[in-house]
């Protein structure tokens, strides 16, 4: 069987119990080391933040967790209902902050602002609220970006990509689904098509132009297994698809890195001043 025909589910299968155990220990230890005992995160009603919520509930006492739902007026009511079902199922405190007044006030003078600008602004508004709650609650912000999004750059820099610790950033979207099933994430969240929910009927797969099944299979061979372009194409992947995904991964590298600093000294932050993140905790 060609590599491109191998079922993604089997290819990317992980041990959900082991992964969950590790992510739970990771959260507990990294948060405690940073001097925090509370966590806060955005709960959208999607599968990624639902998984983060279930992990947080395993890692911390319920009263140390705050989930924040931040709908905009065009957000699907089902999203909010799904988010609420997660918080209620877990018995964790939650808060709803409607971002409509902030977003609409900002764009009041600019009716022609593009969907991209509006979407980015919403993502950054939500980030800003989470970091305010972080300060208010003395809680660390948990990230909910998965490996597929991070590699494809399918997220807003300093928006939904911002966080202090991210338990799921090394799981592809299809692996997040495996973990979600194991954690008991409610059925409607598992079954619905993933969406940033920035406008009506938006879905990730429509916007990206390919399915998570397909792109995760390709990314797995391209990134994890270091297959060359030629080997991928020989293995049955469409050349245009390989090139488009490789390009996305490449051009979005900046979103995964801190800003570039002009090197002037003999010891430059990030270049030859290199300490572990955990140095400071």
């Amino acid at each position: 069987m060609r590599i491109a025909d191998r079922p993604t589910e089997e290819l990317l299968r992980i041990s959900a119990p082991l992964a969950v155990d590790m992510m739970t220990r990771f959260l507990r230890e990294e948060v405690a080391k940073a001097g925090f005992s509370r966590v806060v995160f955005g709960l959208s009603g999607g599968i990624d933040s639902a998984v983060a919520a279930y992990l947080a509930a395993r890692a911390f006492p319920r009263d140390r967790i705050l989930a924040v739902m931040m709908p905009y007026r065009t957000s699907s009511p089902a999203s909010l209902a799904d988010a609420r079902s997660v918080a209620e199922d877990l018995g964790i405190p939650f808060e709803v902050v409607d971002i409509t007044p902030m977003i609409d006030a900002f764009f009041a003078g600019e009716p022609g602002a593009s969907a991209l600008r509006r979407g980015n602004k919403m993502a950054r508004e939500r980030m800003s609220i989470l970091y305010d709650r972080s300060a208010r609650e003395g809680a660390l912000v948990i990230g909910t970006s998965n490996k597929t999004e991070l590699l494809l750059g399918y997220g807003t820099q300093f928006g939904d990509l911002a966080s202090a610790v991210n338990p799921i950033g090394d799981l592809y979207k299809t692996q997040v689904r495996q973990v979600a099933r194991y954690l008991g994430v409610p059925r409607p969240i598992l079954d619905k098509p993933p969406s940033a929910d920035l406008w009506q009927d938006q879905t990730d797969e429509k916007e990206l132009g390919f399915t998570y099944e397909d792109v995760d299979r390709l990314l797995y061979f391209m990134i994890d297994e270091r297959y060359s372009r030629d080997a991928l194409i020989r293995g049955g992947f469409d050349a245009a698809f390989v090139d488009a995904v490789a390009r996305r991964v490449r051009i979005n590298q900046y979103k995964r890195r801190p800003p570039v600093i002009c090197k002037l000294s003999s010891r430059t932050i990030g270049v030859d001043f290199r300490y572990p993140r955990d140095w400071g905790v």
């Binding site: 590790m22 220990r25 990771f26 230890e29 990294e30 080391k33 610790v165 572990p276 993140r277 955990d278």
Partner: peptide, 8 residues
């Protein structure tokens, strides 16, 4: 055992 910079 333990975690350092995300590594377990």
């Amino acid at each position: 055992v333990g975690v350092e910079d995300g590594v377990l």
